[in-house]
Design a protein around this nucleic acid. Sequence first.
DNA 1: CGGGCCACTTGATAAATGTCAAGTGTCTGT
DNA 2: ACAGACACTTGACATTTATCAAGTGGCCCG
Lengths: 238, 238
Amino acid sequence: MAGTNADMSDSYKQEIRDLALFADMDEINFRALMRGAYVQNFPPRIDLIHENEPPDFLHVVLSGSVDLFAEWNGRETSMATVRPVSTFILAASVRNLPYLMSARTLEKSRIALIPSQDVRTVFTVDCAFAQAIVAELAQCYRSVVKNTKDLKLRTSLERLANYLLRQQARTGSTEFNLTMEKRRLASFLGMTPENLSRAFRGLEPYGVKVEGNRIMITDLEDLLSYAKPNPLIDDYSA
Amino acid sequence: MAGTNADMSDSYKQEIRDLALFADMDEINFRALMRGAYVQNFPPRIDLIHENEPPDFLHVVLSGSVDLFAEWNGRETSMATVRPVSTFILAASVRNLPYLMSARTLEKSRIALIPSQDVRTVFTVDCAFAQAIVAELAQCYRSVVKNTKDLKLRTSLERLANYLLRQQARTGSTEFNLTMEKRRLASFLGMTPENLSRAFRGLEPYGVKVEGNRIMITDLEDLLSYAKPNPLIDDYSA
DNA sequence: CGGGCCACTTGATAAATGTCAAGTGTCTGT
DNA sequence: ACAGACACTTGACATTTATCAAGTGGCCCG
């Protein structure tokens, strides 16, 4: 395990406290949670947790980014990217069941670790915390359902087109940089890197220009009419 | 809307009360929930809800079975089957966000409908109920994650093989009947009916015999070594 | 009994996706 | 500056999966 242990500074605590998950809970209970928690700095590409391990800690990404991925039979797929400030593996923590996914840092990252046991203890006594967990889990559940719909209802070209449109909506610009390596994007979208390359070229006729990491949507209307984005799949805020 | 409205009988109430979701909540609050609830009988193949509708009711399947499915761009895919006694669309209900999936009865079914507004109201005052919702949502979330891993990490033949093994484990027998039409199974597994037919024949060399709806696993070891089931994908209880 | 519906199957073919191998370019660290 | 590593691309090819069309068989209903 790499990284340097550090006492939880007040500024970190405040960052965590500001998360919807912790914002409404009782101060006493929040302090109890923080008592056993600590912050670590990790270099890029460090494994944080591995699937099938018991959920010792609830993780909070304070800075950097984390890849959630899964393996089976020698194959590996990227499931999601966690960006600041948010938590991951909440479901495993509250149910005290083994992780279903592994996690590794993508870049230099600061992660807070909160003992799962404390999370479970506090959540049985703090109603506001339990309610916040409900909201968070419902949100997570809906995100995965959307992802499943994306995978089952669309071809890889359509998935890429809609992914680009989501990025366009997020940045508010028709020109942006990819936020992850293409190989990871390919894995996230459920295809091979070779196919992603071809898919990018396959979108050229619909007004997508690619220069390295930079994406330029030159004909938004055209791309929209091909991709047919749908809030029930592509709107990650609802 | 088909089906006959019916007052909630005490035996139905007890069935619902026995669900883990409602078992620990305060009796007063449970009664408040039941006050606005009612039970309806539905014939087969009736649409209960449609994606994008506001979540008016939390549904509880008391008998029969319900198909959850999703549509996009003229395509449709089966997402899950809900069997008694359990609830569906809990996440939409508690977040008060539109359904991500549609639901239709597969057979004659008895469904209890609990106003979502009451669920949200009660869950803010009943800590035990909030905790039960957490447990339920965490479970649902993990199921969908497993399903995503199944889809992204396995070929259709492997998905079918593992599906059969899960049925084998559930029934405790190497001989069983499929619990749904093959066309729905195909959709659930993310393939076409034609391909499912071919996949069944593709599993013959691994000791799978098919006669109509009846499946016979004649060489469990062989099938296991091909399918390589994994608790982190196939064990729906954990 | 017979007709028609429908799920399922099968074969031929097409499209989508993955694999393998080679090549380009960038970046990094010596 | 240079070597090596590595992400990405490209082309040829294999595999997987979907589509289309036709056929089988069961089942319901007149």
